[in-house]
């Protein structure tokens, strides 16, 4: 029987003014320009945003695959930038579970399901492997070959491989891309189940609005910054660590860059007034 008790809680992920720059020949590209974000232990959050906005970069920074050029990124209180390579390996082996983009990217084609789950984790017992497969919805798949599996099942297998060691943080890069609706729902259910049963903090990247709509928290990244945040379906703007406030895209259409505004405190918040409108009113 699968052990459904929560053995350990998820970890908090905290990014403070995180900057990441890709250095290429001839010029540098800032993928993240001061991202500040906190994900609470056991929380499920999705990173949204257009292609190239930096969400996958943020996910890789959280996995310790990249190191921030500036800022601070902690997982469970550990500053990933300060961890040695050995400590990073330990972090990925114990704390982290990660699912890469693409259903077949996470599996080794010539191994069966159990061996794929056990890959790089030889200490896992057969029971733990079976439990992991059952947790994601692939009970009894231990000895099945990978090749005939559907993309949905492959993604579930990837999830099983990522959580078999009961990680405290699960990172998933577009886990539902290229899946049909039914498979998408199954995968999402598996992710929520993992969160619920293991208490694992889940941070995923998605383009799919349906997936985003089902997430209790969404963080939209635009141009390397936090553009907005949604909670339970409601969208919020987020003030950055440097005090800047990215405007929602529809507002930005009316207020193009360079527009002068007056920020007027009001009892229940702030009021933004275009400077020329204010001047006209004054006149």
């Amino acid at each position: 029987m699968r052990d459904t008790t929560i053995e350990q809680a998820g970890v908090a992920v905290a990014a403070h003014a995180v900057v990441h720059i890709y250095r290429t020949e001839g010029h540098d590209v800032a993928a993240l320009s001061g991202v500040t974000l906190t994900v609470s232990p056991g929380e499920v959050a999705a990173l949204l945003g257009p292609s190239g906005s930096g969400k996958s970069t943020l996910l890789q920074l959280c996995a310790g695959l990249l190191r921030p050029a500036a800022g601070r990124l902690t997982v469970g209180g550990d500053d990933l930038a300060r961890l040695s390579p050995t400590e990073l390996d330990e972090f990925r082996r114990v704390t982290l579970g990660m699912v890469l983009q693409g259903a077949d990217t996470n599996v080794v084609p010539y191994l069966n399901c159990a061996d794929n789950v056990r890959l790089a984790r030889p200490g896992l017992s057969a029971t733990q492997v079976s439990d992991a497969l059952a947790l994601v919805g692939l009970p009894g798949y231990d000895d099945r070959e990978v090749t005939p599996l559907s993309p949905g099942d492959l993604q579930l297998l990837a999830l099983a491989g990522a959580v078999a060691h009961r990680p405290r943080l699960l990172l998933a890069d577009e886990p539902t891309s290229k899946l049909d609706h039914a498979s998408r729902d199954i995968v999402m259910e598996a992710i929520f189940r993992i969160n619920a049963e293991l208490g694992t903090t889940v941070l995923l990247v998605t383009h799919d609005p349906v997936v985003a709509a089902r997430m209790p928290r969404t963080v939209t990244i635009r141009d390397g910054r936090i553009g907005a945040e949604g909670r339970s379906g409601e969208e919020f703007a987020v003030i950055s660590a440097d005090g800047s406030l990215p405007l929602p895209p529809d507002v930005l259409a009316d207020l193009p860059p360079g527009t002068l505004l007056r920020v007027l405190p009001e009892p229940d918040g702030l009021r933004l007034v275009r400077a020329e409108d204010d001047d006209a009113a004054t006149d």
Binding site: L65, D89, F91, R92, R93, V108, A120, G161
Partner: peptide, 13 residues
Amino acid sequence: RRDLGLQRLRGSS
């Protein structure tokens, strides 16, 4: 290489 990458991702040194 990719298999090695997966294993590195899962914490193998």
